[in-house]
Nucleic acid binder design. Sequence first.
DNA 1: ACTCAATGTACAATCGATTGTATCTGTGAG
DNA 2: CTCACAGATACAATCGATTGTACATTGAGT
Lengths: 347, 347
Amino acid sequence: MSQNKAKARITMQELADIAGVTRGTISRALSDSPRVNEKTKTRIRELAKEYNYHVNQRARNFRLQKTGVISVVFMLNIKSEQHMSDPFFLEMLGGIADCLAEHDLDLFLSHAPIANILELQDSRVFQNSDGVIFVGQGEQHSELNALANSDTPMVVWGAEMPDQSYCRVGGDNAAGGYIATNHLLELGRRHIAFFGDVNLPEIALRFSGYKKALKEHGVKFDPRLQIEVPFEMERARDAIEELLGSRTKFDAAVCSSDVMALSAIATINESGLRVPADIAIVGYDDIGLARYSSPTLTTVRQNIRWAGRVLVESLLSLLNGQTVADTTLSSELIVRQSSGAVAAKKT
Amino acid sequence: MSQNKAKARITMQELADIAGVTRGTISRALSDSPRVNEKTKTRIRELAKEYNYHVNQRARNFRLQKTGVISVVFMLNIKSEQHMSDPFFLEMLGGIADCLAEHDLDLFLSHAPIANILELQDSRVFQNSDGVIFVGQGEQHSELNALANSDTPMVVWGAEMPDQSYCRVGGDNAAGGYIATNHLLELGRRHIAFFGDVNLPEIALRFSGYKKALKEHGVKFDPRLQIEVPFEMERARDAIEELLGSRTKFDAAVCSSDVMALSAIATINESGLRVPADIAIVGYDDIGLARYSSPTLTTVRQNIRWAGRVLVESLLSLLNGQTVADTTLSSELIVRQSSGAVAAKKT
DNA sequence: ACTCAATGTACAATCGATTGTATCTGTGAG
DNA sequence: CTCACAGATACAATCGATTGTACATTGAGT
């Protein structure tokens, strides 16, 4: 490995002195401006390599008033105990990161003060990036609306809201809730629970789809079967155990996430009941694990990775000053073992 | 919501003009310097709020030559098809993010050009942050060594290497491989496969522990049982299916990750064999899902979240100019159903 | 009243790059 | 030989904050 002449970082001025030109020429040479002679460019590029010169990004960002960074904020719901390590978020993050990489943008992941996202305005989330992607709305729809009026472009993954002034990308939650429930009804289940926090906009829409399906099948909605199950596995388990221990009987459940569904399956198994024989389960999202769990998970697919791409592309359009319409991605039911529709292979 | 006087962002100079003082005083007042009168401070803070003034972070970072940001690079192994969405990475990320948040630092997640991490020197990973955390070494140990000599502090999660010049934090891989194998041997298994890519430093150490355990029990190592299983679920499945279809029989497997183990269980189940009756499985990491899968997963626990904290704390010490010793976290076997040691509750 | 501290503010250099404008150099035409 | 012109490079303002140093104000002590 060849030793670099200068180990310490040198400045553009120093390189200019070495090359016998001015900073301006160095800057233009390195950014391949047509105003610099081709020979000069090559010479400067070689000198830069030789002296181990790198453009100081901090100075550059400052000068250009931009960063090349996109912030991502996961609106983890505190009450629902949602974690960053939720596979849904992670897959979304993967889609976002991949797409950003293609556009040569970097990703800034914030430890958001979820309590009040307006505080983000002072933080690096807004100041250190060219745009912000919010994943989820939490219960801060109006705050998001307020932020949308700041000068940093943003897009939001979530549910369609009546008075929303930000650009939204999301799944078709009402349809998702409907097809999940409908599937269970068609399998003959009649006591179908709904697991999730209906205070969250997306879940509320799915819940409406759930009720619509029940109604169409002439099944009366039983409020005791709507349980505010947290997203976090351990806590979900507690909530489900409580339901299992109660006198309320059910033969199926529509869950708000696949993780919740997996937790439900484990809890139900431990209680001595069987999935799907005694209780059929439908998840939501179709995370990677859904098809590898035992039993495999029937679920409402959201193409999460693609959603990440759509979020990024929408944001980039906004950055270019274009107006961007909302996007609703279609929902699709993936039928696997946990809902009892497919015979288990082993038996 | 009160309307702010100025919607557009104002500069410190402008606020200074409004307040009738100079930039310097504003700067000191907002950073709570003792050199500014308490009354002046309050007055300035109120004016700042009134006129919606926020310190320009870009300018600040530029001036202070620092960022308040830590970069995290996941050394996803391409050959092994490891993804960012691997729960191991995600839990690690969670630990890191939490700990950084406590220190009021932000997190920069890079789409690393894994091909050659030396290129990172030019990128925002090194230039836009005060320090870098590498998770994993891939096969670029020597490049990491080279990077360690740059002026940006860094720490690495991974295996202990002979000539390593960077600060390392990692699990006790040799011990982990040993206890996993030992456990299976004590359960009477004799044809124990090892799933993983031994070109990766950490896996190589576990493999050595595996062989040590075999030796101690007088079991001869069968090279056909060491399979280079990728980390990615789908690909892992292919590799395991191939083994199952071959003439090589085995009654247990030590896996390089829990995801790999879950994939193995699913694949084995589908082939008509049973876990753990026919083939016992031990995972690695103890990710959250390990205890919720069916069957629950016996695994070698690495306290991943804590590891994230240790990485951060080590890096912060380096940032303070201290010298930091390597850390090796202990490994512990968590015995659950998949290895056959615990009777399944349902039977 | 006068000096001396102590306290509070103003001044101005500085960080490292980008970019519009001015200047220089060299060539070909008249 | 001069002039026009184009191409290449130099000059210098600029982005927005931080901070060492110099100056001004105030009050206490004598």
